[in-house]
Design a protein around this nucleic acid. Structure first.
Length: 443
RNA sequence: GUGGGUAUAGCGUAGCUGGUUAACGCGUCAGUUUGUGGCACUGAAGACCGAGAGUUCGAAUCUCUCUACCCACCCCA
């Protein structure tokens, strides 16, 4: 590598041109589905007031405690690069009065998030997320709809072996009871628990459940389940959701151990997990957060949503050998030799491009042979070479790069419209070049 | 933050227990009789062997430090 004086920050990635088609495929997929489900796109700032995340994500969470990139301009209050998309989106929803504009509000976004974690497979410090948020309904049909959206995206992306796990972590009332039950269960074992679990016991007992340490997980195995402690309302909600999922043919697994690491979640939580991308297998995660809007605005309003990790989605697709949509290549390469012909080539190119045709001509000064090699490398569908004799004759041989077939095309004003029509007819049916061109020119 | 692994041209690799012009494939560029690609052939460019110290007559090859990357813990998308 050429010695680079300044390196790319740890945990960030460049997407080079040859890889962009994957991102284009995925972003188009995600947007079209969100729109089909009636979600509207929103864009929000890359940074927000730090307190927004402290209040919403929760001040005891890892994300807030040790993963935030806080930025400060001189004298300003603290700002933080968003570690996730929900907080900012909900803030925007409230701040722009969208909640008064008819409910439910259904928003989606594609944005980058920043977390200061140690990078590994499927985990970057800057990563990209597609997310949706729906505000203004507590009905479990909304939960089903949101899960259904995520599910169809993953299906249409072509993924296999994606497990949907769902759980309910209850409302503040029943969760408080459950947390007490957990404390009662774990306290007798307190001496055996790992250090982090000691603090968890006090601050966030739910997290005790997915501690990976052998001893803790062994103890946790027989811990009480949240599902046995749900209040009537929460249990009914969860049961209805399951009914809807089943009715829509969406397979799921109840996993009473899934505990989201963000404090705003209530009732339904879910995640789509892939086994094919290493230990960071959660491709999509989300749930309901009925209390968030109220903590941010004092106006109660139930809501829910999910985030989908685009890097992880692409990684899963790659590892499963899924086909991405191919990027369009060059339509026509216009070679030339001699100054006069080069000018003609530029003129034709400019006119074609104005019509949206992907046209290229020589800008390096290469030999005709080298130009043709380049045209081949570009994957040009057609080529034409202009020299003095072509200029004189007013026509040149248009070559079909795939079949090698050549046929004259006039080098006058008709070039653009004829070539354009040829591209269209090609897209529809693969005629021979002679027939196609002959037909177009005789019209 | 804690572990383990790796670091040689744009990419993928070779380089045995230190020995003097760092090799190969792909790619790139040019050419193969004067104006047409995909194959083949010829040639060229391109690496101070991640960075910095040390051992030695001599290090890509040994030692140490640092950095980056990869994988895992943790956490999550």
């Amino acid at each position: 590598m050429a010695t680079l004086k300044v390196q790319r920050p740890n945990g960030t990635k460049d997407v080079v041109p040859s890889q962009m088609y994957k991102w284009n495929t995925v972003e188009a997929l995600v947007k079209s589905h969100a729109e089909a489900y009636g979600f509207k796109e929103i864009r929000i700032p890359t940074f927000e007031s730090t307190s927004l995340f402290v209040r919403s994500v929760g001040d005891t969470t890892d994300v807030v405690q040790k993963e935030m990139y806080s930025v400060s301009a001189t004298g300003d209050e603290g700002y933080t690069l968003r570690p996730e998309g929900t907080a900012g989106t909900i803030r925007a929803l409230i701040e722009n009065g969208l909640l008064n504009d008819g409910l439910p509000q259904k928003l989606f976004y594609v944005l980058s998030c920043f977390r200061h974690e140690k990078p590994q497979a499927g985990r970057l410090r800057e990563f990209h997320q597609f997310g949706v948020e729906m505000a203004g309904t507590k009905d479990p049909r909304a939960d089903a709809e949101v899960i259904s959206l995520a599910k169809s995206i993953l299906d249409v992306a072509g993924l296999r072996n994606i497990q949907l796990n769902i759980n309910s972590i209850g409302c503040p009332e029943c969760r408080a009871q459950y947390q007490q039950a957990l404390k009662d269960y774990f306290t007798p074992h307190i001496d055996k628990l790992c250090d982090t679990c000691h603090t968890r016991l006090e601050k966030n007992p739910l997290r005790l459940l997915d501690c990976k340490s052998e001893i803790c997980s062994e103890i946790a195995k027989d811990a009480p389940s949240i599902l046995d402690h749900l209040c009537d309302d929460c249990r009914g909600h969860f049961e209805k959701l399951q009914g809807y999922l089943t009715a829509m043919g969406i397979e799921y697994k109840i996993n009473d151990r899934i505990v989201r690491g963000l404090d705003y979640y209530t009732k339904t939580v879910f995640e789509f997990v892939s086994e094919d991308i290493g230990s960071q297998g959660t491709v999509c995660g989300g749930g309901r957060y009925d209390g968030l809007i109220e903590t941010l605005s004092d106006k109660p309003c139930p809501a829910l949503g999910f985030g989908m990790g685009l890097e992880r989605l692409i990684l899963t697709m790659e590892n499963q050998g899924v086909e991405f949509a191919e990027e369009e290549s060059c339509d026509i390469y216009i070679g030339s030799m001699g100054d006069a012909a080069a000018v003609k080539a530029m003129q034709i190119c400019r006119a074609l491009r104005a019509d949206g045709v992907r046209a290229e001509c020589d800008v390096v000064g290469r030999s005709v042979r080298a130009q043709m090699k380049y045209a081949d490398k570009l994957g040009a569908k057609f080529s034409v070479v202009i020299g003095d004799s072509e200029l004189e004759a007013g026509k040149a041989a248009l070559k079909d790069m795939k079949s090698g077939e050549q046929n004259d095309i006039p080098l006058d004003d008709r070039f653009g419209s004829v070539f354009n029509a040829l591209l269209i007819s090609r897209a529809l049916e693969d005629d021979g070049l002679e027939d196609a061109l002959g037909g177009l020119l005789s019209e």
